[in-house]
């Protein structure tokens, strides 16, 4: 059974927070699905980028437990295609920031074998640090 949509002060506050952090007028999203259609990592996601947008519109904080925001590669494919001019990559970043600002990281560099870290180019490690480590 699909759950009932609840809109209250808490859901509105969450939506407003993500609008503030992303700088994007998320309420403009009309769920066309273009972002999901072109996303290169959608096959690994538990909810699609457009579902992520919808959940934020409805202020559903459980979107923070989805893997989608962490899997976004900030490739900006959706950014250049959204017919509403929205930047989904910024929304994913805003959601990551909510976690990162509570010191909840998505990557533990200590768990990556030293040989792998030595092999990886600095550009990969620094980008992952910026996106997934508080």
């Amino acid at each position: 059974m699909p759950g009932k949509i609840v809109i209250n002060d808490k859901t509105i506050a969450f939506l407003e927070k993500i609008i503030e952090l992303s700088g994007e007028t998320i309420t403009l999203c009309d769920q066309c699905g273009t972002c999901s259609g072109g996303c290169p990592v959608i096959h690994e996601m538990d909810i699609t980028p457009s579902q992520m947008m919808h959940k934020v519109q409805l202020g559903q904080e459980d979107v923070l437990e989805s893997k989608t925001m962490w899997l976004c590669a900030s490739c900006n494919t959706c950014t250049v295609r959204c017919p509403r001019g929205l930047d989904v990559a910024k929304v994913a970043e805003a959601l990551r920031q909510v976690k990162l600002r509570q010191s909840i990281d998505n990557v533990d560099l200590n768990s990556i074998p030293k040989e792998d870290l030595r092999e990886l180019p600095p550009i990969a490690i620094i980008a992952a640090n910026r996106k997934m480590i508080s």
């Binding site: 690994e44 590669a73 990557v107 990969a124 490690i125 980008a127 992952a128």
Partner: peptide
């Protein structure tokens, strides 16, 4: 998939 190489 960019920096996802680090842990994915």
């Amino acid at each position: 998939a960019s920096y996802q190489i680090v842990n994915n």
